[in-house]
Computed example of a mutant assay.
Amino acid sequence: MTNTPALRQPCPPGVCDCGREQLLQQANSDLRILLLTRTEEKRLLERLENLESLADLQNLQRRLYEQLGVRLAVAPGFNEVRSMRGLAIQIDELPGLCRKTRQAIPTAIRRGLAKRPEIAYELLNAHDLFRDV
């Protein structure tokens, strides 16, 4: 008897546009994103809020892609960065990724960077902050 991993519970009808049901009905679909249960999502958000360094953030980005197929990009915004809101945090569209999760991940990252602003400075420096000086 094989143990199948627990899949995320469906969102209430009409509340989310994640496409969970369509993803389950497709034959060759990537179901990794459905492994992100609500408890695992809480652990992920807590982890993102307690970042240790830029390397830690980059490691989490890599692991999100490897384990769940979620592409996450964090970079300075197009205009001047005056606060954590000026950072562009982008999550690629992915069938099965809940709307609330898509909103919660950038919020958790911003909270983590607000707690440790030196990580945001490292991120800015990594993207050539001083190129015109």
Score class of each variant (00 low, 15 high):
57 L>V: 01
17 D>F: 05
56 D>Y: 05
11 C>P: 00
76 P>R: 06
101 T>P: 05
50 N>D: 08
24 L>Y: 04
88 A>F: 01
110 R>Y: 06
57 L>R: 00
126 A>I: 01
65 Y>H: 14
24 L>F: 11
42 K>G: 10
82 R>C: 10
54 L>W: 06
39 T>A: 12
115 K>W: 04
64 L>N: 02
10 P>L: 03
1 M>L: 13
13 P>R: 11
27 A>F: 13
23 L>M: 10
82 R>E: 15
107 T>H: 12
71 R>T: 14
39 T>S: 14
120 A>N: 02
133 V>H: 05
16 C>S: 09
1 M>D: 12
23 L>Q: 11
100 K>S: 11
47 R>Y: 03
54 L>H: 05
71 R>P: 03
3 N>M: 08
77 G>M: 11
73 A>R: 04
30 D>H: 10
43 R>D: 15
89 I>V: 09
72 L>N: 04
128 D>K: 15
74 V>E: 03
8 R>E: 10
35 L>S: 06
111 R>N: 09
49 E>F: 03
86 G>M: 01
40 E>G: 10
94 L>V: 09
42 K>A: 15
122 E>T: 15
90 Q>E: 10
59 N>A: 14
64 L>D: 08
99 R>C: 11
37 T>Q: 09
102 R>Y: 05
48 L>W: 00
34 L>F: 13
52 E>T: 09
65 Y>W: 15
122 E>M: 12
22 Q>C: 06
21 E>H: 02
116 R>Q: 06
108 A>I: 00
61 Q>H: 11
13 P>H: 04
104 A>G: 09
15 V>E: 14
